[in-house]
Design a protein around this nucleic acid. Sequence first.
DNA 1: CTGAAAGCGCTTACAG
DNA 2: CTGAAAGCGCTTACAG
Lengths: 340, 340
Amino acid sequence: MATVPTGRSRATIIDVAQAAGVSRQTVSNSLKHPERVRPDTLERVLAEIDRLDYTPSTAATSLRDQRAGAVGIELTGLGTTPSEALAPFLLGLAVHAPAHDCHIVTFATDADRPEPERYRSMWRSRLVDAFVMMDTHPDDPRPGWLRERRVPFASFGRVWDDPSFTAWADVDGRAGTSDAVDHLAARGYERIGWLGWPDGSAIGDERRSGWVDALERHGLDGPEARAEQDLVSAMAAAEGLVDSVGGGGAIVCTSDVLALGVHQVLLRRGLIPGRDVGIVGFDGSQTARTHGLTSVHQPYGAIADTLLTQVHDQLTDDELPSAGVMLAPELVPDASTERT
Amino acid sequence: MATVPTGRSRATIIDVAQAAGVSRQTVSNSLKHPERVRPDTLERVLAEIDRLDYTPSTAATSLRDQRAGAVGIELTGLGTTPSEALAPFLLGLAVHAPAHDCHIVTFATDADRPEPERYRSMWRSRLVDAFVMMDTHPDDPRPGWLRERRVPFASFGRVWDDPSFTAWADVDGRAGTSDAVDHLAARGYERIGWLGWPDGSAIGDERRSGWVDALERHGLDGPEARAEQDLVSAMAAAEGLVDSVGGGGAIVCTSDVLALGVHQVLLRRGLIPGRDVGIVGFDGSQTARTHGLTSVHQPYGAIADTLLTQVHDQLTDDELPSAGVMLAPELVPDASTERT
DNA sequence: CTGAAAGCGCTTACAG
DNA sequence: CTGAAAGCGCTTACAG
């Protein structure tokens, strides 16, 4: 009778077979096809599996099944500064991976711009069956490289360069800012302005359109201003905009950083965000939480889950999803839209 | 003559052997023991390896070598809010992993507190050879669980519960705040105060001691105040402290959030951070970057590299490092300590 | 219902 | 210097 292995050694299928007095394949059947095993045998085998704390070796099953059971994700970021979305998105992937029968392998380079080299080595060595990608940008070489080689992958964010690519999930920015306007109107803010990025960014334009739509729906009209994605630029633009909407007005912003700019301007003027002027940001970042900014939160868990599904389907059916998936973000109220 | 594989199929050692007209083991030798192969043969084999884009299969080598070549890391966080250190630390791990001949596998639960269950399943299935851990806390069940089973791991942050455990790397908080005082003194700030957490936190006390030391070294004296780790508490505490240090003074803080509290109070009073009152935060977080706060940055890359070394040594020598490693953080100046 | 065999891809002693 | 063999742990047809 085998004893419980101690230290670092881990039980193999042979240990279980010997302990239960059956052959290896009966152990395997007990796990994969229990109906093929006589009940009393099954019970005995499962008891030993439990006692020996046995799980099939990943390396062996992955060699045998010709699949790694892993999805790779590149950790992108400008040098040492990762994108704010990285951590919550990774957390979403890691939480949902077991339900998709896979695990998540990370990789990164210290290169400034993403390039396909590491994808190549991960793929060549069969470390992963597929990839999940974020932060794609115009002229990103990665999607094309992967598609040429028919490597399965899915993208957080549309691949704007390639409309025929449908394995993506993205956040419906239009719905998010539209919700923001509804929220502000419901709370009784009068004039609802817009602080956005300069025209021409796909994401920024989409988010602005939600504000336009909702304003029209409510029969309202509102001032707008533009700023780059940094605090100094945001504060400069916010000055005039705060004057325009005035006390009892509110401002919807393309991002939390822009929203923070509005917040800082109010603070400097001795005004109280929420009570005097409402603010809604976008992304649900740490910045929003820290400053009590109402923000449109990205549904990271749902995005991760969708992408893993799309990747799994490609692995199974060998074809792309029929269409990308737009997910509704969620407005999370905080102090910056409290009027009391 | 074999052709380049297309689509998803990837070359195996047999493809290379056939293409080069040698046996499998000669291919393997060409990679692992090139000196055993005759030069002209070697050249021919390497050419085919290159042409076919061949790399040994991870699953096969890992089965054969009885090592996964992977290190697991749990993504911790309070529900959906990951710690700010998570992303840069993971990036550090991913960047340094190849130099340690391994890759990084992530996992997570949606449980509030970390528990050993997922460590158990990762370990049982031999998916990883070792773990790296962060955010350990008093009564954390994970280090004990791993040590009992002699599972190799290393911790970002000392395991305070278990001083005999030496596989850790941590940031020298004392050195960091001491540097902060030096930096402020060099820039000519007069009174240098302290805004810290309440007494009793190991990290907070250590950081404060660096301020005490440096003040003494400079023959200075300074006021101090305490606040919890949130913006509201920080702003409340900062009010009095700003009065105490006055114009031309400066404040060293236990964290970037506390530093932000000081920053916001200055803003509200119409004072300019840096010019009127200096501020130094700690952690080098996104918050610090956004607000132009000088901060003591954690050396995430060096921490990751150290932990991977410690884990690798345990795998090789089967014993713990002789001592933990304290790494010096780096003060990164920004607008909040510019006097212009 | 259960067992013996083949094979996933690789590497390292071991012969030639 | 090169080749045939064994074995890492597993699973799935295939016989009994």
